[in-house]
Computed example of a mutant assay.
Amino acid sequence: MNYTLNQLQIFLKIVQTQSVTKASEELHLTQPAVSIQLKNFQDQFDIPLTEVVGRKIYITDFGREIAEAAENIINQVHAINYKTHAYKGQLSGRLKISVVSTGKYVMPFFLADFMNQHQAIELVMDVTNKHKVIESLEQNQVDFALVSILPTTLHVEKLDLLQNKLFLVGNAQAKVPARTKADEIFKELPLIFREKGSGTRQTMESFLESNHISVQKKMELTSNEAVKQAVLAGLGYSIMPLIGIRNELHSHQLQIIPIKGLPIITTWSLIWLKGKKHSPVSAAFLHHLEEEKDNIAHDTFRWYEQY
């Protein structure tokens, strides 16, 4: 046996994602590079680790046992690195955070100073939709989650970081007469939704339901960036978080459509399972945010106040 740590990491990621393509994306490697390393790793075993049926890869029972062993080895390597840093008096370990997709415009600014102060810390931040964020929190796979709508099915504690404002948005060419009722806007152009499981979609649907608005035409896209590009192209309107459209508003590519009942205001909150025992790293990060969150919000998001 002459497998490498790199091969173990690649194989484990393939098992976790059930896909060579997805594994290559998450590892920031080319697909051929991942395929070559997988083949080199498999060639060292007499029993198959994977099976390919059609175009889909399946992990054998033996492969799953090897993946479990690989994960243990990788964790031990991390532990050695952390002990080395600790011996030097440095705060070290992993900080794992799951962030709803629009939160990618928020969370990095609340992380930057802390990560710069403690460079031995390894950050793992997953950006996905609300459903998957809550799932990872429920399974205790992460230290914290960033959401704009609190889960109703979990007992959590929270630290509020920033307001989240959502406006009806159209492109620069959109012409909506003043005092046009919301239900009239959507008779001609579709309303563009995020996918099911998205917090933004949940907020939109609550607004439509409470205002008795029936949407005759709708589109569904799977990322905030895709929604923004569709609005820019004139395909319709969407109710979007202000945090993700700052540049387009300043360059007059997008415009806010005044509608009664908007903006919708929620709060970006860092949440964690109630009663969770924080690691030294996550406890230090929480303490940092409690001390600095107001300064970060004021210094970085001052532009928010004009809307």
Score class of each variant (00 low, 15 high):
Lys130Val: 01
Leu111Tyr: 02
Thr102Val: 10
Leu111Trp: 02
Gln119Phe: 04
Asp143Val: 05
Asp113Tyr: 03
Met125Ile: 05
His118Met: 04
Met115Gln: 06
Val100Gly: 07
Phe114Asn: 10
Val127Ser: 12
Asn129Arg: 05
Asn129Ile: 07
Ala120Thr: 06
Val99Phe: 04
Ile134Ser: 06
Ala112Lys: 15
Met115Ile: 10
Asn129Gln: 09
Pro108Ala: 05
Lys130Gln: 14
Gln117Leu: 08
Val133Phe: 03
Gln141His: 12
Val127Asn: 06
Gln139Ser: 15
Ser98Cys: 15
Val100Ser: 14
Lys104Met: 08
Val133Ile: 02
Met107Val: 03
Asp126Phe: 03
Glu138Gly: 10
Asp143Glu: 03
Val127Lys: 06
Gln119His: 08
Val99His: 08
Met125Thr: 07
Lys132Tyr: 06
Asp126His: 12
Lys104Gln: 07
Glu135Trp: 02
Thr102Ser: 13
Val127Tyr: 06
Met107Asn: 05
Val106Gly: 07
Ile134Phe: 01
Gln141Ile: 01
Pro108Leu: 06
Asn116Phe: 05
Asn129Met: 10
Ser101Lys: 12
Leu111Ile: 01
Ala112Glu: 12
His131Arg: 13
Val133Cys: 11
Phe144Cys: 14
Met107Ser: 05
Lys132Ser: 14
Lys104Cys: 07
His118Gly: 14
Lys130Gly: 15
Glu122Ser: 13
Leu137Arg: 05
Ala112Val: 00
Pro108Ile: 04
Asn140Thr: 04
Asp143Tyr: 04
Val99Ile: 14
Met125Ala: 13
Leu137Cys: 10
Ile134Thr: 08
Ser136Trp: 01
Gln141Gly: 10
Asp126Ile: 06
Val133Asp: 06
Thr102Ala: 13
Ser101Met: 10
Leu111Asp: 01
Ile134His: 06
Asp143His: 11
Gln139Lys: 11
Val106Glu: 03
Ser98Thr: 10
Pro108Thr: 01
Ser136Thr: 11
Ile121Lys: 04
Gln141Phe: 01
Gln139Ile: 04
Phe110Asp: 06
Asp113His: 07
His118Arg: 08
Tyr105Ile: 03
Asp143Ala: 05
Val99Arg: 11
His118Val: 11
Ser136Leu: 13
Val127Trp: 02
His131Gln: 14
Lys132Gln: 11
Ile134Met: 09
Lys132Phe: 05
Phe110Arg: 00
Glu138Trp: 03
Val99Gln: 08
Ser136Phe: 03
Thr102Ile: 07
Lys130Tyr: 12
Asn129His: 09
Phe144Arg: 12
Asn116Ala: 08
Met125Tyr: 00
Phe109Pro: 11
Asn140Val: 02
Gln119Pro: 15
Leu123Asn: 03
Ile121Gly: 09
Gly103Tyr: 06
Asn116Val: 01
Val127Phe: 01
Lys132Arg: 09
Leu137Gln: 07
Gln141Arg: 13
Val124Gly: 15
